[in-house]
Amino acid sequence: MTMETALLTLDTLAKYLKEKEVQLDMEENNGQRFIRMGWRFEMGDAAVLVSVNDGPNNTSRLEVTCVTQKTYTERREEVVNMLNDRNRERAFARSIDTDGNVWLEYVGFYPTLAEMPQETFDTLFGGVLMHFQDDYATLEGPGPHGPQLQQPQA
C-alpha cells in the first residue's frame, strides 16, 4: 500500500482545515481563489484568508493573511510605530490599511505542487495565528505593553 503524498494546493489546505472542523468559505475574486474564515479571538474577531497562486518559473505563492475586524484609525500613529517595531523584531509582515484594519501576512514561495504534509501546514498556520493573536492582544491591551501572553517564537 502506498501513501498518497499531499501537494500544495488550495484544496489540500481546505481539506486539512475542514478535518479540524474549521468553518470556511471558498471564494473567488477575478479568477483568484482563496479560503476565507472568520476567527473569534478573546480580544475581537478577525478574518483569515489563505491563497495559493501559481507564479512564474514553476513557483507557487502561499499566503496566509489575518485582518482585524476592529479598526484603529484614531490611534494610527501609535499603531504604525508598534507594527513597525514588531516587523523588525518578529516574523511576518504587519500593516494598517486606510480603513484602520490591522493586517498580518505570511507569504511563502514554494516549487509548484511541492509536498505539503498536514503537520507542516498545521505548524505554519498555528504560528501565524499565534503571532496575530499576540498583536491583537497588544492592540487591545490595557497598557503600552498589553497583557502578558506567551511570546510566540519568531
Binding site: E27, M37, R40
Partner: peptide, 13 residues
C-alpha cells in the same frame, strides 16, 4: 472580499 464579511466564529483559543 472583506467588505460585508461576517465570520462564522471559529474559536481561536
Amino acid at each position: 472580499a472583506l467588505n460585508g464579511w461576517r465570520g462564522r466564529g471559529n474559536l481561536a483559543s
